[in-house]
Amino acid sequence: MSTGNMNLTLKVWRQKNNKTAGALVDYKLAEISPDMSFLEMFDVLNEQLINKGEEPVVFDHDCREGICGMCSMFINGRPHGPKDLVTTCQLHMRSFKDGDTIVVEPWRAAAFPVVKDLTVDRSAFDRVIAAGGFISVNTGNAQDANSLPIPKMQADAAFEAAACIGCGACVATCKNASAMLFVSAKISQLALLPQGQPERYRRVQSMVAQMDAEGFGNCTNTGACEAECPKGISLENIARMNRDFASAKFASEETV
C-alpha cells in the first residue's frame, strides 16, 4: 500500500485502558505517500504492527469523509492537525514534510476518559444532547415545510450551528476543557428556529446543567475552540447561549 517517499517518526500515545497510565511510543514509518490521509497512514502503521505480532493502535473513525465526527486525534499540539476547517480523516500527509516527527495524542479531558490508545469516551456529549437537545413534534402527517415562514438569515444561522459534528475538538483544544462551543451549537440550532421555541428556555438550562455535571471546565473566552473547530462553529453561538441562559434564569417563570 505504501507507494510514496515520505519517512516519518510517529510518537503515538499508547494506553491500555482508563485504569493504567499511558506513554508516548516511537514508531518509524517509511515510504508514506503524500496523498494518503492521516488515518490511512495509521492503517499502514497498524498493518506493520499486526505483521510484527504487536497490538495495533486503537483510534476512532467512521465515515472518513469529514461528516461523522468520530475521528479525534490531537496532532502536534492541535486537534485534527495543522490545517484549519478539516477533520483528521480529511487531513492529508502532504500537510507534513519528509522526515517530520509527528506527536499524536488523544483528546484530553476529565469528561472524555481514554478507552484505549487514541480512543476516548465522548458519551458525555450524548448525555448533554439527551438532557434537552430535542423538539416536540405531533405525530401524524408531516406538515408542509413552507407553513412556517423562517427568515433566510435565521435559517442560515441555524444551519451553520447544525453543522457541528460533535467531534469534541473544541473541548480538546480549550485550555479549560470547556464544552461551551459544542453545547451552544446544539442549543442554537434549535433556538434559532420556530420549532425549537416551546422548549427553548427549559432546554438551555437543562443542557448547561448536564454540561456542568459531566465535569467540563469553565469557558474563559480564549477563542481557541472557534479557531480549531473543523466546521467553523462561531463564538456567536456561545454568546446566544449566555443570553438565553440569562433570560431563562432571570426572566422566565420556568427555572429548571
Binding site: G77, R78, A110, A227
Partner: peptide
C-alpha cells in the same frame, strides 16, 4: 481538574492569544 492529564505537545499559539 477538567484536564487532569496534560498534553505532551500543545500548540496554543496556533489558535489563541
Amino acid at each position: 481538574k477538567a484536564r487532569p492529564v496534560k498534553y505532551a505537545v500543545n500548540d496554543g499559539k496556533a489558535n489563541s492569544k
